[in-house]
């Protein structure tokens, strides 16, 4: 393999690893954030209902 071929092979491997890592982190952390967002939006909706 030439220098470019070797470099692209390594970069591709790193890309796949980072992509998978981000997926795992986001799926776990995102589930918790959804709960927080729903509570916040329901609170806002209640406040707006009381004001009107």
């Amino acid at each position: 393999m030439t220098g470019w071929q070797t470099a692209w092979t390594w970069i591709f491997g790193i890309a796949v690893f980072l992509f998978f890592l981000v997926e795992v982190v986001v799926v776990v952390g995102g589930a918790r954030d959804i709960g927080d967002m729903m509570r916040s939006l329901m609170g806002q909706a209640d406040e707006n209902r009381e004001e009107s």
Partner: peptide
């Protein structure tokens, strides 16, 4: 649908996006 109470909640989810959910939606 019932969570949309004003323009901010329709357009910006009430500005309540935290980091990981922000990453999921941006990703």
């Amino acid at each position: 649908r019932r969570l949309i109470s004003n323009y901010d909640s329709f357009l910006l989810a009430g500005r309540s996006l935290k980091l990981y959910l922000g990453m999921a939606t941006m990703g």
